[in-house]
Amino acid sequence: MAAETGTPTTLTLKSNDDELFSVAESAAILSVTIRNMVEDGCAGGVIPLDNVDGKTLASVITYMNGISAIPADEEKKKSYRDKFLSDKDFETLADMVLAANYLNMSCLMDAVSAKIAQVMEKKSVGWVRRKFGIENDYTPEEEAAVKEEHKWTFEGVETDDDN
């Protein structure tokens, strides 16, 4: 999935599985990591991004192009982000948050983190464990002790329904 060219400067990004993507510099510099490389003059050839696979990078570039096409209007940007993330499953979100972290893109990082947090919000511990496949390695006694430590946060929320 290559970004449209036609803009004066185009960068070529390479994923860790050797896929090449071209993207307008103006969109790519949303990533502070890429911006620094451009400013240091390392962007002449291909920019290798060793921690991002092709599938994730394609998604990130879609986001870069989409968000940079919106003028300075925080409301519109927010609704674009919501729409962009709405159909992503958790595995994809996890890959994207790692990519956003590596690429130093705070707006994407925050949007994905908030999206993941949203899944955890107002849910019981059991529900969150099942949703994310977290193995409970506490003994029942240990678990009770941890709960007792922060009693005030558990009262009235220990319902295990899948809402």
Binding site: A117, M120, V146, F154, V157
Partner: peptide, 13 residues
């Protein structure tokens, strides 16, 4: 997350 929700994650594993 709120403080309560953040604290609650301590029980996950």
């Amino acid at each position: 997350l709120t403080q309560e929700e953040a604290v609650r994650t301590s029980v996950l594993s």
